[in-house]
Structures are given as structure tokens and as C-alpha cells.
């Protein structure tokens, strides 16, 4: 027998208090989420006038976009963004996988417990605290330079040197997130059928063979899912971290879309131009994430939604 829903008006009346409760939330979504979304489409096609505000400004069509696409600066920023994202992926993708497998395989429950407890902590530190830690280690008077000097070496200006910027950004992010990154793989590992391991033991397979033939295929879907997710976010290269770590001496290698939008928009008050850049970033980002999701769903059957 088919379940019949009561009339719409009766259902609405039944939930009146719930509507009342979510009313402020709907206003919030409207004002703080959807209105800015709408505003960015308007602003990107206007020339913002400080006196007239958004609505008193003049429409300029695609001018903001032709302006940024004609700038060398923009391509520098774009390439920095993509390079830093890909470096993060290249060096940051495998360490959590390796660590998760090692942790999972450990027979000593004590070591595993203690390590897991400690390894997750840095994830919860703010990037400001992280910069403080990095500064203590890598500044001219920091621990690393003290050690270099003890061995008779010259002080390396790690925080101001363009050649050190990207290695520092990428490695400090790996340091912060390696433990946290293992969690999703640990969950995947526990779902592997344990009879497979028993069978491997009977067949006399060593640990490396076991990892190659059972463990890695068992977490393949998690790997592909996370990989596509990061490829989808290739235009977001970690603005919060870079905003703290970079300085005029390292702009050439460190300035990314997020930091460029911040400086051009809020420091130089180029609202329209900065909005056009960030609209470009969101549009490409949206396409990439939709494609990434579709790819992940097709190859391993796991999507974001």
C-alpha cells in the first residue's frame, strides 16, 4: 500500500516553529553567502567607484578580464599557484599513505597508540603558530642556523630567500598534515578483508608483497578519490599559509591567486580587478571539482557527493 502524505498546507502548519527557527538562518544564507556570490558577478563587470559603491559604479563589460589577461603579473601569479599546488601534491600525497600503512602494520599496539596521539596534534595548530615554530627554527637566529654556524657554515637566510620559499612552504605543510592525512587511509585499511592477509601468509608472501598485492589495492579508491580532489583544488594553493610565510623578497615565487586578490583588492583597493581574478579562480575551480568528482566516481565509485 502506498503511503499517502498529508496535504501540503497541513504539513507546513505542522512545522511552523521549525520555519520560524530557520528564518534567521535563511537570512544569513541570503545576506552572507548568496548576496556576495551575486555581488561578485556584478563587481567583476563594473569599474568600482569608491564614492558610488557597487550600484553607483559603471558597467564595463569584460574590461576587467581583458585587463588582467594582458598583465604579465597575472600569469606569474597563475603559474606560482599551479606550481605550488602541484608541488604540494607531488611531495605531500604519498607520505600519509606510507605512514598509514606502517602504523596499520605495526604489531606493537603501544607504539601505534602513542604515535597516533602525537602525530595528529600539529593539524590543530593555527598557521600563525606554525609560522612561529618555523621562525624559531629557520630565522637567521633560529635553531637551524645555530647548528649550521656550530659546524662552521654561513648563515642561510631561509625566510627571505626565493630558492628556499617553496621547499619551506611544502615541507611545513607536510609536517603539519602528515598525521591527520593518515586517518582516512586508516579507515580504508580497516575495511580490507582480513582473510586476504591470512591467505597471503599461507602462500608465504613477505611484507612487501603483501603491501603491493593486498594493502595498496585495498585503499586504491581512497587514493584516487583524494588525488582527484586535490587536482580539483589546484587553483587554491593555501593562501592562509602563504600570506604568513611570504614577503616582498619572495613574491616572485610565492605570490598566488589568493594572496594576489588580497593585496590588489584590500590593500590597493582595486575591488573590481581583484574580484575578476577571484571569479576566474572560482569558475575554473568549480569546473575542475565537477570533473574531478565525475572522474573519481567513474574510476573507483567514490565521489564527494
Amino acid at each position: 500500500m502506498k503511503h499517502t502524505q498529508p496535504k501540503l498546507i497541513i504539513r507546513i502548519r505542522r512545522f511552523w516553529f521549525l520555519y520560524l527557527l530557520i528564518a534567521p538562518i535563511l537570512i544569513y544564507y541570503g545576506v552572507m553567502r548568496y548576496y556576495p556570490m551575486f555581488l561578485q558577478f556584478v563587481l567583476a563587470f563594473k569599474k568600482y567607484n569608491l564614492l558610488g559603491g557597487v550600484w553607483g559604479s559603471e558597467w564595463v563589460g569584460w574590461d576587467n578580464f581583458t585587463y588582467i589577461f594582458a598583465k604579465d603579473e597575472f600569469y606569474q601569479v597563475l603559474s606560482n599557484t599551479v606550481i605550488i599546488s602541484l608541488l604540494r601534491l607531488l611531495f605531500g600525497f604519498f607520505p600519509p599513505i606510507i605512514l598509514a600503512i606502517l602504523l596499520y602494520d605495526l604489531q606493537s599496539r603501544f607504539i601505534r597508540r602513542v604515535s597516533q596521539t602525537i602525530l595528529y596534534i600539529p593539524h590543530f595548530f593555527s598557521w600563525v603558530v606554525m609560522y612561529g615554530l618555523i621562525f624559531a627554527l629557520f630565522s637567521n637566529t633560529g635553531l637551524i642556523n645555530q647548528i649550521i654556524q656550530q659546524f662552521g657554515g654561513d648563515v642561510q637566510n631561509f625566510l627571505m630567500a626565493p630558492e628556499w620559499f617553496r621547499p619551506l612552504i611544502v615541507s611545513s605543510a607536510i609536517w603539519k598534515e602528515i598525521g591527520w592525512g593518515t586517518i582516512i587511509y586508516m579507515a580504508g585499511l580497516t575495511m580490507i578483508d582480513s582473510t586476504l592477509y591470512d591467505a597471503a601468509k599461507i602462500d608465504g608472501a613477505g611484507p612487501l608483497k603483501r603491501i603491493w598485492h593486498i594493502t595498496l589495492p585495498g585503499i586504491r579508491h581512497v587514493m584516487v578519490f583524494l588525488l582527484t580532489l586535490s587536482l580539483g583544488g589546484v587553483l587554491s594553493a593555501g593562501g592562509e599559509q602563504i600570506l604568513l610565510f611570504y614577503n616582498p623578497a619572495t613574491y616572485s615565487v610565492g605570490d598566488i591567486i589568493d594572496t594576489y586578490v588580497y593585496r590588489q583588492g584590500l590593500n590597493e583597493l582595486q575591488y573590481s580587478m581583484a574580484t575578476a581574478v577571484s571569479l576566474f579562480q572560482s569558475a575554473i575551480g568549480l569546473v575542475l571539482i565537477l570533473v574531478a568528482n565525475a572522474v573519481s566516481k567513474r574510476t573507483v565509485g567514490t565521489g564527494i557527493w
Binding site: I22, Y29, V31, M32, R33, Y34, Y35, P36, M37, L39, Q40, L43, V54, D258, V261, Y262, G265, L266, Y271, A274, T275, S278, L279, S282, L286, I289, W305
Partner: peptide, 21 residues
């Protein structure tokens, strides 16, 4: 409602418009 919530995960308002609001 659910759709409205999902959209905000995929697409944000951007820095400048949020600041202006």
C-alpha cells in the same frame, strides 16, 4: 534548503564581495 546549503560548499562569494557586505 539542502540544495541551497550544498551550493555554498561548491561556490563562495569571494574575498572582496564578502568584505563589502
Amino acid at each position: 534548503l539542502l540544495f541551497a546549503v550544498l551550493v555554498t560548499i561548491l561556490f563562495g562569494g569571494g574575498l572582496i564581495p564578502s568584505y563589502l557586505v
